[in-house]
């Protein structure tokens, strides 16, 4: 944590080395969180890239009293929610209008992961978003129920309920593996 405080201070002073170190330290954790929530490597990369880019731009106006990791984690959670909302709202698009619009470009390279991770990520997608988010924040980001409740804007009891139901459903999804 002390390292994070020094990194925050140096980053605020404009240090690119500090920014690079923050990126290296958290990029994989955040990618894992985004993948667990979206199960789409391109969207996950986009979200994480966006979070770091915005963070980089906050530069000398950056003030943060709390944990850097919690700050970045919350930014990813919010970025994912925006995408989930957008995907729900996105209307069917006429593919015949070829004028100025062209197909968007995707991220350039790939995520590295084991087969197990891909399977788990798919299984998580069977859960409602709130339960998935709760499980990821609790088990992968090591957040306390109190912190998750604050992010989700609900009571601790609700978070604990989501966690419990989420675990049960995931257990059913992974039945064969868990019962072995």
């Amino acid at each position: 944590m002390l390292e994070d405080e020094i990194l925050k201070w140096k980053f605020k002073g404009g240090s690119s080395e500090a920014l690079a170190r923050i990126y290296e330290k958290y990029v994989d954790t955040l990618l894992t969180l985004a993948m667990g929530l979206l199960n789409d490597p391109y969207e996950a990369e986009d979200v994480v890239q966006d979070v770091f880019t915005r963070f980089a731009r906050s530069g000398n106006g950056f003030t943060l009293r709390g944990s850097l990791k919690a700050y970045l984690t919350t930014a990813v959670v919010n970025g994912v929610r925006d995408r989930v909302r957008r995907d729900k709202r996105r209307p069917a698009r006429s593919d015949q209008d070829v004028s100025l619009a062209s197909a968007s470009r995707g991220p350039d390279e790939e995520l590295v992961f084991a087969e197990d991770a891909a399977r788990l990520s798919s299984a998580l997608m069977e859960l409602p978003h709130e339960q998935r988010e709760t499980l990821m924040l609790k088990l992968k980001s090591n957040m306390k129920f109190r912190e998750i409740a604050k992010i989700q804007g609900v009571s601790i009891n609700t978070v604990q309920g989501r966690y419990r139901y989420g675990l049960q459903k995931l257990r059913a999804q992974l039945n064969g593996e868990v019962e072995q």
């Binding site: 690079a20 390279e109 995520l111």
Partner: peptide, 26 residues
Amino acid sequence: ILQDKLHFSAGSKLRRRMLARVLDAQ
């Protein structure tokens, strides 16, 4: 299982490219 097996990381080229964009933004 979630804690041990759910891990994703950026491949080296992706990692470099993302970082370059972040530093450019800064």
